[in-house]
Design a protein around this nucleic acid. Structure first.
Length: 349
DNA sequence: AAAATTAACCGCCAGG
DNA sequence: TACCTGGCGGTTAATT
């Protein structure tokens, strides 16, 4: 995808493949909850996702609770669209924390330039000071939600969320939910397969957005530790529109068909075919709401042989028909933060 | 719409 | 003995 209207030689392809993650380090302040999210980006990078982690802030060296010693740049870099700025929690953020004046300004400028701002735990207060929570849905550690709502009345604080995404501002609740949030960012950037690999590597159980009670099927059913089953799942996620036969899947997993079915069900609670159906239905759901495609086209794109078979499978799962879902979807007002399909140029609106 | 074909699944058993 | 694994055959479910 070539950026329309771009001129000159300033942007090389390699630049675009790297998503800088700037970690904001405040002077003389202990950074909390940092290791988990950074691990996620680091692991993703080792798996080919290309994140570049960079500690920034007004102070030259910071020692974190995790024992990390980080070099920070003396000045805050210019921030461009697509970057992630990770703001870790700090002690006393809700109190009298002294914040260098240029930090708030830098944050809001970076956001205006298109950077994604991600906070962990009490860092939501730092976002608040930068004015980034105005009119936005947000969350913080459960013990601080009341204080946050009080301090920033214009923020719509959500209590029961692991993390909340609103526009390019993502706030998370606490230590572990910072990992969930980071994984969600990885899923956005590099797809569900990458996210599930990273999650598995870190042996975390994750969900995508507890505030909606929603889980992603790509990331679900991954809480087990059976490598053969994971291989089969990876294969299905990658090729879920293809006709994958059980023997073929067994070959990928390195077991017999009989044994794979047994292991699969033991590890995930689902049979391979049922898992594949869930993957396909997940795609159908997003296609139904995000595009003007016929049921027939959606069915084929999601790997069903035709609309008829989709309708049957859909009915078995949801009790109604795909078109009735779409009607209900359209009747509802569109969501504020239109989580559009990734990739392509913003198709209209 | 019904019948035929094919694939998935599972109980059961045997060998290691 | 307890457990893991693969193969066989029958049943169920999907597809044509």
């Amino acid at each position: 995808v070539v950026e329309a209207g771009f001129q000159g030689d300033g942007a090389r392809l390699s630049d675009r493949m790297t998503t800088p993650v700037h970690v904001l380090a405040l002077p003389g302040v202990e950074l909390l909850d940092l290791a988990g999210p950074v691990q996620v980006f680091d692991t993703a990078t080792r798996m080919g996702a290309a994140y570049e982690i960079c500690f920034v802030g007004p102070s030259p060296i910071v020692t974190t609770a995790q024992g990390l010693i980080v070099n920070t740049t003396a000045s805050l870099p210019h921030s461009e669209s697509g970057h992630v700025i990770l703001v870790p929690g700090v002690r006393n953020a809700s109190g009298d924390l002294q914040l260098p004046s240029d930090v708030s300004e830098w944050l809001s400028r970076a956001h205006a330039a298109g950077a994604r701002i991600a906070s962990v735990c009490s860092a939501a207060f730092i976002l608040g000071r930068a004015g980034l929570l105005r009119g936005r849905r947000a969350t913080t550690h459960w013990s601080l939600t009341t204080a946050l709502a009080h301090r920033y009345p214009e923020a719509r604080v959500e209590e029961q969320a692991l993390f909340v995404e609103d526009g390019n501002v993502i706030t998370s609740a606490g230590v572990a939910s910072g990992i969930d949030m980071a994984l969600w960012i990885v899923e956005r950037d590099h797809g569900p397969l990458m996210a599930s690999r990273v999650a598995r590597e870190l042996v975390v159980y994750l969900r995508r957005d507890a505030s909606h009670g929603q889980t992603s099927v790509y990331l679900d059913y991954r809480t087990h530790l059976n490598p053969a089953v994971h291989r089969a799942q990876d294969y299905l996620v990658t090729n879920f529109t293809a006709d994958v036969t059980l023997p073929e899947l067994a070959a990928v997993a390195g077991t017999s068909s009989r044994h794979l079915v047994r292991l699969f069900k033991e590890s995930t609670g689902l049979t391979p075919a049922a898992y594949q159906r869930k993957l396909r239905l997940e795609l159908v759901e997003t296609l139904l709401s995000s595009a003007e495609l016929s049921i027939e086209v959606i069915a084929r794109r999601a790997g069903f042989s035709d609309a008829r078979s989709l309708r049957r499978v859909w009915a078995a799962h949801h009790g109604d028909s795909p078109s009735s879902r779409r009607r209900r979807e359209n009747a509802r007002p569109p969501r504020a933060d239109a989580a559009g399909t990734d990739g392509g140029p913003a198709a209209e609106r």
